[in-house]
Design a protein around this nucleic acid. Sequence first.
DNA 1: GACCTAATGGAACAGGAATCCCGTTAATGA
DNA 2: TCATTAACGGGATTCCTGTTCCATTAGGTC
Lengths: 229, 229
Amino acid sequence: MTAEPPAPDTPETPAPGTATPGTPTPGTATPGTVRPGGRTARVRAAVLRAAEDALVEHGFSGLDLGDVAQRAEVGRTTVYRRWGTTSALVADLLTDMAEQSLPRTRTGSLAEDLRANARLVQRTLADPRQGALFRAVIVAATCDPGAAEALRRFYLRRVEEWAPCVTEAVERGELPPDTDEFEAVRAVSAPLYYRMLTTAEPLDEAAADRAAAAAEAAARAGAYRRQDI
Amino acid sequence: MTAEPPAPDTPETPAPGTATPGTPTPGTATPGTVRPGGRTARVRAAVLRAAEDALVEHGFSGLDLGDVAQRAEVGRTTVYRRWGTTSALVADLLTDMAEQSLPRTRTGSLAEDLRANARLVQRTLADPRQGALFRAVIVAATCDPGAAEALRRFYLRRVEEWAPCVTEAVERGELPPDTDEFEAVRAVSAPLYYRMLTTAEPLDEAAADRAAAAAEAAARAGAYRRQDI
DNA sequence: GACCTAATGGAACAGGAATCCCGTTAATGA
DNA sequence: TCATTAACGGGATTCCTGTTCCATTAGGTC
């Protein structure tokens, strides 16, 4: 978010044209890759922040590249040229979001760890800004394969961050040895997202604690063992 | 889906204008309410089916009322006048979907019941047509309050259909007496939806069985008791 | 069967988003 | 510091979505 120095790999659409894969087409390279420093990076940071604001306010369906350009105080042409579509812009935003990993809290017990995770997710989704942003990117991922891939990478990062608390519980003998730590961590988030999408009930701490307790009970019962059946 | 005879209550937006609630405004009533029989019903059925097809093919973000009108072999003006927006059309489609409730299978055991539910959800989401349709309506619900309300009613119907298998298990003494049957039923679906939205892993029967087993274990452990804490 | 009018449908119209053109600015390497 | 050209930005243009107007069709009722 805060002034990305470079764009390491292709943050935009892989290639604009499908013609002549043999020729490198030096003049048709994706913008932002040859001179990624200085202005280009500033433009990207401003546009991503503006996109975030716009998504929070109007959701993905109301995302307009012209509006984003105005908010970012950047030319419309620039936004259309570098990102092209709202889906591609959200995908780039998601890769940016994935890079800022917030470290997990480390407590000693499985129950505490899972509850900390559940409350973090609950607070995020219940927060007006963060919650709206997450809903918007989920919508984008459901509409576009590129955004979907970016969303998957984002959640993979998050799950990887929290998986150790399950493996440590396995090592302590609290859980079956072949417990799938990814599946267990996802089990904490799942009820919270499902509730947000399909009910009007509030996402409060009680819901978070229930999700954590349910995941823990299921894990202890061996519901997330790998070679099931 | 198959030729709705009438439209019992207001299927469209509640009221187009906010002006003068005292006057009934006889000439400005919402179309389709005064003469709901015959052609009007046929048009609604054709449009809803066309909307379903369009959603499956292009998703909610690609839903175009003009395209829907063409598929339904109905005038564009009619679709724009009766539904107005893509969100309202999806909301009407959802109320139509909620009316066709498929009855739950009744087995004797909690584990079997939950697994039957999980596999039904899994098959629905894994089916190319049904899965795409569900993703599309979830997107619509995330974008529009009216569609969200319709989606909630749809899922409420579904959960109500399956809740008895939990209450029966409570009566048999398999589960704690104050188990929240709605929460328990939702716990079966949650991991499947979460997996569909945030990962690329396939929604197979193993995932369904895992979801059912996890929900059962959590329920037995008392994770869905009402007066928790 | 005849009347009334709700509801439909074709066509023209309007507004806004995406694209194109081309001059300007500044990042990169010497 | 200077030359090169990648990247940006303003404005005109095109295309498409949504609206409006009015003639036509067909429910509902006597």
